[in-house]
Write a protein that binds this DNA or RNA. Structure first.
Length: 296
DNA sequence: AAGCGAACCTGGCTGC
DNA sequence: TGCAGCCAGGTTCGCT
């Protein structure tokens, strides 16, 4: 599962393959993923040209020439693989090869492009989903209407965080994972950002706000760390754990840079800190943190 | 309204 | 080897 950096990486893999190309056919292995696919899904896509590919939160958006948007979410185990078996395919497709370890039983949607490229959506747990939305309705679509700010955009500021957090009693970790506040953070990068900011994951979210809902020191410390950890992860091509791979089957490397995630029992990496990384369950998810240097 | 837990679904790993 | 149990990157739903 892909959090923002992984989705961004997949998006960058798909963009050059899809952009400007015409969808020749769409084959569905089943009528639903997490939710039923839209009515006449395949027919509505066939013959459409993809204008561009972008990302919003953890969604990949393919903008089509009939002013509709194909929105795709990878859930926990969704992945795209790209094949360019057609000899006539343009050069840039050459580096992509189909089928790195994906179990074909979970190939649910296959897009064939007019130029011969084949893009396959594989999702073992089927928590992913796809939707077709008219461009002008995107902002009101249930999937998108309540999304919070992009963490790498200018809207994520200590002031924004403080205003949203003021008075909240829930854990700072749950607050940061709430897509209605910040759209794109997930379990890994919240753990990593809290570690970098030296913030205890169980801190009440309200501590991000000082008097008058102004940013606290914690909020001023946290926001730059959120942006930094996401930016670094994107540069590394995301993190590769279990089910996630790039569209070309290769791996991201940011998991090698995790400071706390998945490091239960190992020494804290903070210079001079004698702590050990601990794991606890918050909201049904594992939180990794150092109980010694993540104090306030 | 906010804040929990459960549910969705499958596979991989651990330990008896 | 077999099998039960636990764990997994996300999101929605329904009940306090």
């Amino acid at each position: 599962m892909p959090e923002l950096p992984e989705v961004e990486t997949v998006c960058r893999g798909l963009a050059p393959v899809l952009s400007g190309q015409i969808i020749a056919s769409v084959k569905l292995a089943r009528p639903d993923l997490r939710f039923p696919l839209p009515d006449r899904f395949a027919q509505r896509l066939e013959g459409r040209r993809v204008r561009s590919v972008s990302r919003r939160a953890k969604y990949i958006l393919a903008h089509l020439d009939d002013d509709s948007v194909l929105a795709m979410h990878l859930g926990m185990t969704g992945r795209f693989t790209i094949a360019a078996k057609d000899k006539a395919a343009p050069e840039p497709l050459g580096e992509y090869v189909y089928g790195h370890g994906a179990d074909a039983r979970h190939d649910h949607v296959v897009f064939r492009l007019k130029n011969g490229a084949v893009i396959t959506y594989n999702d073992a747990r089927r928590f992913g989903y796809m939707s077709l939305i008219a461009s002008q309705d995107l902002a009101h679509d249930p999937f998108f209407a309540n999304l919070g700010v992009e963490p790498l955009g200018d809207d994520l500021t200590p002031e924004y965080v403080a205003a949203k957090a003021a008075g909240r009693k829930s854990d700072i970790k749950a607050f940061l994972m709430d897509q209605r506040i910040i759209a794109g953070l997930g379990n890994i990068y919240v753990c990593e950002a809290l570690y970098r900011a030296r913030l205890k994951p169980t801190l009440p979210a309200g501590r991000l706000a000082a008097r008058g809902a102004k940013p606290s020191d914690a909020a001023r410390r946290l926001v730059p760390h959120i942006k930094a950890v996401l930016t670094e992860a994107i540069l590394a091509g995301g993190s590769t754990l279990r089910d996630y791979q790039h569209t070309d089957g290769s791996s991201g490397s940011f998991q090698e840079s995790f400071s706390v995630y998945g490091r239960e029992g190992e020494p804290c990496l903070t210079p001079g800190c004698k702590g050990t990384v601990r794991r606890k369950t918050q909201g049904g998810r594992s939180t990794f943190f150092c109980g010694v240097c993540q104090r306030t």
